[in-house]
Design a protein around this nucleic acid. Structure first.
Lengths: 345, 345
DNA sequence: ATGAAAGCGCTAACAC
DNA sequence: GTGTTAGCGCTTTCAT
């Protein structure tokens, strides 16, 4: 291998610096203004067909790419949207938030600047500062589970919306999952299958999910004229272990169905049911929550659950940010949690 | 709540446009050059303590933030690194790639421009074009599972490195997991626990993982003077269902340990073992692969496995890109897959 | 229909 | 020590 330049520019086309507008103008025999107009299809400028064609060809030949950064300098406002997340990486589904935000952002010509902070305040501030310095159009501040937050002060320097969380003083627009409706949906799934003794393994962690899903459960029971039986509602840590242990406490009461706070709890419940030789859904119907696909789709039998709308949260956040949807300051915007039907009911 | 301006600029400092360097200069009674020098701690410029202090104070008071985009325009090179991924969102662990890339990028003053393309070629081209227009320092092109790819042509226009994949004509530097070492590690875990009849449920999907892990398995067996028994190696789809089904085929042979192609396969194997009343690890030791935390950490018993080094892949990719590590063109850089000890062996 | 020129916020010579 | 100035690549009046 012969010595190479630092960047290893061995490629076939000579490694000349990328063409800029001036180069195109020169090649096409026009001014940069003309090039600018044809590049942007500026309707206020009438460009002759001949010139337009020459410009197009020059662009093609030189492989010209507009410099988005220079454009930003002039217009004052960039096409960046910042997304600061406490945990994209540590949690399996938060990636969906990115995906939703990105798809919606692209739709409007924006691109995502992503920063995962691990919840670390220092990293958070640094991330926001960086975004501000890059003149983002706005910032999405997101958490992977639904909770109240006190947003970093620097967010005030730009447009910002909270995704999957809300600020207690509701100073910023927010979009969160509709826990109550989710709780209702889960319960309804079981009700519709004919169950009357429906248990609920709730999380022991105080949170909007804890209170919201419980409220939905109770509302739905009430709508079905079923008396609320506190013995059927137990709390547990929201993981497999918690689910298993709670199930053991619960399975003595003669329940025929269980609504689990999330899919991991359901996974634990499956284990418990197996230990008791209870068949799902024959002896016991179960509904999860979250739709954590790795789990829910591959349990035996596959788990019927209620999905946390991460993708939609991200997308809705962008829409709020860009003013496509109106932000209802004061109360967070709610995004529905849809049922996902599989085979455990 | 009283009526607010559209952006809700109720804050104490009047909602004037963000301060620029000129404003700071004026406020401090110096020139912009001086401000620039103190902002960047330019060692070539000697600034008087008095002036420096006045500038600092002005910056503070005006809430001045440097405009990173303008800086880029001048220097010609931005602080962006692009990350285009086929599936951050659709897969649970690829988020770790982002995290690794981001941490390493930040360490060197770079920020990540993320684009998830879903493998869609159109989206891919669009994403790369967008990154090129933003004058990224380089692009990380990543796939969520290890495979050969033919990189989009546009990647040639900038520095690029493949992460988790490689190009068959090895035209681009690449960093991938060390499947062979991973296979060796998994097998060794079982060997060290005293097992001699070790089965391997491999994936039926042709891939570097398929051949590499098998090779590692065989190498390790050979090193332990154990004859390779083809009957102990079966192929299956790499999910719970495949694992269950393969286990049923396998458990007739008197194996005492199974190395599973991944954690989901191991999950299926657990199911099968339970159906046969085989205790893990008492009757059957099992090792997974991937370390898909939702699964491996919460199976009963928790699964001993070999981790796919997504985080390190992302970080190594950035280091290659920035020239911190040297790219060995020709063969991909290998990243080790470390063992994760839990309770299934 | 097209071009000249000012200027976006910043850096880096180079004066003074 | 500190200020002046010429750009970086682009958009956008305003002339022509």
């Amino acid at each position: 291998m012969r010595p190479t330049t630092p960047r290893g520019d061995d490629a076939v086309p000579p490694p000349r610096a990328p063409a800029v507008m001036r180069d195109v103008a020169k090649a096409a025999g026009v001014s940069v203004a003309t090039v600018s107009h044809v590049v942007n299809d500026n309707p206020n400028a009438r460009i002759g067909d001949a010139a337009r064609e020459r410009v197009r060809r020059a662009i093609e030949e030189l492989g010209y790419r507009p410099n988005a950064l220079a454009k930003t300098l002039v217009s004052g406002t960039s096409k960046f949207i910042g997304l600061v997340a406490d945990a994209i990486a540590t949690t399996p589904f938060a990636g969906q938030i990115i995906q939703g935000a990105q798809d919606e952002a692209w739709k409007h010509g924006y691109v995502l600047l992503v920063a995962n902070t691990g919840g670390n305040e220092g990293a958070e501030e640094q991330a926001i500062a960086m975004m501000l310095e890059h003149k983002v159009r706005g910032i999405l501040y997101s958490t992977w589970f639904h909770r109240a937050v006190t947003p970093p002060a620097a967010l005030a320097e730009t447009a910002a919306v909270l995704v999957g969380c809300y600020s207690e003083d509701s100073t910023l627009p927010a979009v969160v999952p509709d826990e109550v409706q989710g709780g209702r949906t889960a319960t309804q799934l079981l009700l519709e299958a004919g169950h009357r003794r429906i248990a609920f393994i709730n999380t022991s962690h105080p949170s909007p999910a804890q209170t919201g899903r419980l409220q939905g459960y109770r509302e739905m029971l009430e709508a079905a004229d079923i008396a609320y039986d506190p013995a059927l509602v137990v709390e547990a840590t929201s993981d497999q272990e918690g689910g298993y242990e709670a199930a053991m406490r619960l399975l003595d009461h003669d329940v025929t169905a269980v609504f689990c706070h999330n899919d991991r709890v359901a996974m634990g419940l499956y284990d418990a049911a197996r230990d008791r030789s209870l068949k799902v859904p024959g002896d016991l119907a179960v509904v999860g929550f979250d739709d954590q696909e790795v789990i829910s789709a591959h349990l035996r039998p596959p788990l019927t659950t209620v999905a946390l709308p991460h993708y939609d949260l991200g997308a809705a956040g962008v829409r709020l940010l860009l003013g496509i949807d109106d932000a209802t300051l004061g109360t967070p915007q709610l995004v529905a949690c849809p049922p996902v039907l599989r085979s455990s009911v």
